[in-house]
């Protein structure tokens, strides 16, 4: 069986695992929606749709939506389940099988991408009644799902790295919190050009900024291929780095 076939089998197992623990998906949905409601509640009046140019005629919720989507995509449970496999001995059972080492880590990442499709779709559907529309239309919606899934793979890959190195649930869990500083060092509340100079520099150094701007452009505008291209490029590089580091880590796992 090819490495792709093996990764698919392990990915299907990871999806089954997620479906059997629906309770783990609830915070993944509720916390990002909570942030959306609170952020819009706090800053919505400052940025009325009619007089705020960067909103492109939509509500401030549309501007905030990418933050919530990215937050949800960063709540992947792949690494925690991986630690569980390591602690319970199942990871060794899989390592003792004549399968590609890459499949061991890629399978879970594929499953994380599929879960991200589902969760992002639900968040967007829940946001639609609040006057949010996807300005780039159905194709833009699909692109939005794809880019978000790539971010989910990136962040799950980062968490899996911690899991493989630490083999500890506590350390892996703490790794999840690293997303919050990354999220707050982005043009989260206003576009980058409205940030103070130090914040603008920090945001420009943060890869999440380019992903967020790509998602935001798909929600607020018709296709802005330059912004989308930069976001997709950043994600492409991050996914490759994470997959390479994960494969390297599992190859040296002793």
């Amino acid at each position: 069986m090819s490495a792709f076939g093996q990764a698919t089998l392990l990915g299907a197992r990871a999806v089954r695992e997620a479906l059997r623990t629906p309770e783990s998906l609830i915070p993944t949905l509720l916390i990002p929606l909570f942030f959306l409601v609170v952020n819009v509640g706090q800053a919505g009046k400052i940025f009325p749709a009619e007089s705020t140019g960067f909103l492109e005629g939509q509500s401030y919720a549309a501007f905030q939506l990418p933050s919530s989507i990215l937050l949800a995509a960063s709540f992947g449970s792949a690494a925690l389940y991986l630690v569980e496999d390591i602690e319970g001995g199942y990871f060794d059972k899989l390592r003792a099988a004549p399968i590609s080492r890459s499949a061991l880590v890629v399978g879970r990442l594929v499953a994380e991408a599929l879960k991200s499709f589902l969760i992002t779709t639900v968040i967007i559907l829940l946001a639609l009644p609040f006057g949010i529309t996807i300005a780039s239309g159905p194709l833009g919606f699909v692109l939005l799902l794809l880019l978000t899934a790539l971010w989910a793979v990136t962040y799950a890959g980062f968490m899996q790295l911690i899991a493989l190195k630490s083999r500890s649930a506590a350390a892996t869990n703490s790794g999840g919190l690293a997303f919050f500083p990354l999220l707050f060092l982005t043009p989260n509340f206003v576009p980058r050009e409205l940030l103070t100079r130090p914040m603008e520099i920090a945001a420009s150094c943060n890869p999440v900024t380019y992903v967020m701007e790509a998602l935001r452009s798909l929600i607020l505008e018709d296709f802005d291929w330059a912004t989308i291209g930069i976001g997709a490029g950043v994600l492409g590089v991050l996914v490759v780095i994470m997959v390479v580091l994960n494969v390297r880590s599992v190859n040296h796992y002793d």
Binding site: R16, G88, G89, D92, K93, P98
Partner: peptide
């Protein structure tokens, strides 16, 4: 191995089928 290396969320049959497919 010392720890029964099993995935608690799979059924016994699913676990054996997956293992056989990986082989």
């Amino acid at each position: 191995l010392q720890e029964a290396g099993l995935d608690p969320r799979q059924t016994g049959r699913e676990l054996l089928i997956l293992q056989a497919r990986l082989f």
